[in-house]
Design a protein around this nucleic acid. Structure first.
Lengths: 217, 217
DNA sequence: TACTTGTTTCAACGAGCGTTGAAGATACGA
DNA sequence: TCGTATCTTCAACGCTCGTTGAAACAAGTA
């Protein structure tokens, strides 16, 4: 391939990404990671300060790229939709499409990365602090855009809607294979095109349904 | 309280449920569990055959109750809606309400249990096999009912829709506290009433939007 | 009382864990 | 060429892990 040779840091991040995604933080040992990376055990502490440092670096690496691309699309969408009231579909697309594009066109590490994100997002240990550290500033801008696109909806509904949206996305990214079993092979968890065709439609309709529901509170 | 004294098995299941939910399978040691249960370490192997046996017993215990209650409501709903075409809202309610009711009215162990389910569901290790073993027969009946309620939708859309539905539910059950942070305290992850008011509306509208989307495939 | 069955205690096993510090290698500027 | 900063190797530390087998205990039956 003749790419610029991977540094030790990159080797460690790649191996850790894959293994953390498969077995979780506590289920993966540094010895397994360093063996897979072809690198000495002690180098984890040298480059990342320890196991937790490596884990957070894994989250950060692609998280930064994802944030960048998401914000780029959000801005682009805002330029396209002149008046100031973006459509819910457009906001949702700007949020999902970077993920779907990375999954389809870029290196396979993104699959592991998003599967890992799925676990982190649903974990009481990491879900709050670590997801927040990396993604909150971006996510808040998307929630604001969603509110603009649903001006009649109370903010609480949009926050809950974002929660549902993230949950639907997250389980799909986990690619557990459960969908394959339930559908008897008709659907495949890893079928990004099928996901792209449906996730946005489901979520946009859900958000609008939420905004329109009979208000009791 | 004067309840019939808890057996060793129950003490272990209760402690394990809480701790597995908080820190995951690999993040929780048998020593932590047995200490919390006030029980000797070796009794895990005596009663459950090992750590994995204990874990699966935790999933099974309340899973059986949940399945029972869900099927009861599904049958009840079918009796109420004579003609044979149940509404999507009614099916979705029969699926969600048992969980929401258990969370609100029954013993607090359900909170831990559902948080644990949320992690298991999103885990590549457990998601497929263990969730399937306990829940597949029930879930398949709900998917069939969803198909009846959306006769115009291709089966693939319903399977994917169920996937999104489960994801939205699952992240909400995890109660990670992220929603609290994002909303600046306006919403609370653990607010079951707020969840009840919104989850069904979001998901039903999402499913219908999915069924109605322009078909490309 | 003696025996049986089910349960609990105790002490220990071997293995794997994350982390560390000192020694070694490497490459680069003076 | 030497010195220095960066990176890598190696061996070991103290600790916790899940599991086990033998012994102790309790309760019910004969």
């Amino acid at each position: 391939m003749a790419r610029p040779r991977r540094t030790t840091k990159e080797k460690l991040l790649d191996a850790a990404e894959k293994l953390f995604a498969r077995k979780g933080y506590h289920g993966t040992s540094l010895r397994t990671i360093t063996r897979a990376a072809g690198v000495d055990l002690a180098l984890v502490n040298y480059h990342f300060g320890g196991k937790q440092g490596l884990f957070e670096a894994v989250i950060d690496r692609r998280g930064a790229l994802l944030n960048e691309e998401r914000l780029r699309r959000l801005a682009e969408m805002r330029r396209a939709a002149e008046p100031g009231y973006p459509s819910t579909e457009a906001v949702v697309s700007a949020f999902f499409d970077p993920i779907l594009d990375f999954l389809e066109h870029a290196d396979p590490g993104w699959h592991s990365y998003f599967a890992l994100l799925a676990e982190v997002n649903n974990s009481p240990v990491w879900g709050k602090r670590l997801m927040g550290k990396t993604f909150n500033t971006t996510v808040k801008q998307f929630i604001a855009a969603l509110m603009q696109s649903l001006p009649e909806a109370p903010p609480e509904d949009v926050y809950w809607g974002y929660n549902f949206l993230t949950g639907a996305l997250t389980l799909s990214l986990a690619e557990t294979g459960r969908l394959d079993v339930l559908s008897g092979g008709l659907c495949r968890s890893a079928d990004v095109a099928a996901l792209r065709a449906r996730l946005g439609a489901f979520v946009s309709a859900g958000l609008r349904g939420l905004a329109r529901r009979p208000q009791a509170d």
